[in-house]
Design a protein around this nucleic acid. Sequence first.
DNA 1: ACCTGAACACCGTTCAAGT
DNA 2: ACCTGAACACCGTTCAAGT
Lengths: 249, 249
Amino acid sequence: MPRDASTPDAPARRNPPRARTGRPPATSREEILAAARLVIERDGWERLTVRRLAAELGIGTTTLYHHVRDREDLLVQLLNEHTDRTLRPDLPDDPRDRVVAAAVAMHDSLAAWPWAAEILTTDGFLARLGEPALRVVETIVAAAIEHGCTEEQAVHLFRSVWYYTVGEILVRARTRDRRPDALQPGALRPGAPGPGDPFFGDGVDMSRLPTLAAVGDRWPALAAQDTYASALEAFVDGLFARAAADRQG
Amino acid sequence: MPRDASTPDAPARRNPPRARTGRPPATSREEILAAARLVIERDGWERLTVRRLAAELGIGTTTLYHHVRDREDLLVQLLNEHTDRTLRPDLPDDPRDRVVAAAVAMHDSLAAWPWAAEILTTDGFLARLGEPALRVVETIVAAAIEHGCTEEQAVHLFRSVWYYTVGEILVRARTRDRRPDALQPGALRPGAPGPGDPFFGDGVDMSRLPTLAAVGDRWPALAAQDTYASALEAFVDGLFARAAADRQG
DNA sequence: ACCTGAACACCGTTCAAGT
DNA sequence: ACCTGAACACCGTTCAAGT
């Protein structure tokens, strides 16, 4: 029976107070996470599989399952380690600005690791977050209450901001770079849209969609502009205004 | 060389004006989509694979690739057919209300099919949408312009609303039902959180997260409440206000 | 006490050949 | 003109055994 795979190695295990019995461990949580980062950096995020990671470490695939519960557990541990290192927001005094700053910090930390997209939406993800990430959640909910929200409104506000943030990261992570010089696999496939093709209307009659037809090929360029923070501010202001109105009656 | 797999069968093919040569087609786009819907309804969305779908139709796996370009193309066709049937929003006269109504209609149509989550974020998804879905995009962008937005602001507004909507659908689709009577696979696994366990703080010191500690176990119940439409209204109002302020200087 | 080969039960996609 | 078996190149996960 393996020891609990999702818990970090107990200190006693790494600094044994007495001689251990049996085989020494072939690897550790730290080595596994380091190897995973190496694979991601060297071969790309798509190449990080349980089998590949084991091969990278020179251990049997099965052995990995003594240190991580499953693939998802590996990913959550990797992300928690990443937020541990990168999520240190500067927090303004004003509660409204604090909500925005905390959300932007969370967004930037997650968006910097495209593979985060794969686990952002898994069940109970929020509850599996490590302390640095939970601190940001705490910051947002507490600031919303400080601004005048009820506890319930504050939780709803966080959740709405979270949906927006997750959606932005997910869509962006899967949107291939459309710069003209970006050479993509499949870019020259006969069916693939090229620079000369219209963005909308592959077989659609655009005469009944005049606004989209007018935007036309400018859509991808407009969509590529980063308006996350500015729309977030609008969202937070709108949510605060609505919450205040709801409290009034 | 197969004919273009992503285009619907030409009418001439289904009603041949003269005798065809060669083998008659073993299946059609319509039969494939109908079989896919059957597999989803009967076996669940996770079970819809290219191989299973071919087996369901009684044809070789390879044959399917004459009718769909790849798995993603199958999914997009399936979703376009779904929106074709379900996306018929009632549109109010007021532009602001029209943006909200169109976004809610789009949300409800997509949220009703949990498997939509898998393709919502694929590259160029918006451009591959069918006419009913594009009509909703048109509605939102046009209404934003009617409300006073520039074309650019209107596109950005749509995109922000889209991120929020996609995030909501994705997170909800992957959040398992937490009602006490919901029996889940793995629910009795030793490591899985039970009703008695705290929601937050699996190994985290909650004393430094007082607000989350105070919310505690009530979080999942609060998170389960549907506030999509109400937060959407706040978002749209906030975006309109900000766009107006930006135009002022 | 810890590690592992081999197997289970699958995937999406493509090639070279049928019919 | 249309269809297909077989293969390619993989997956995550688990079992019954090693050492």
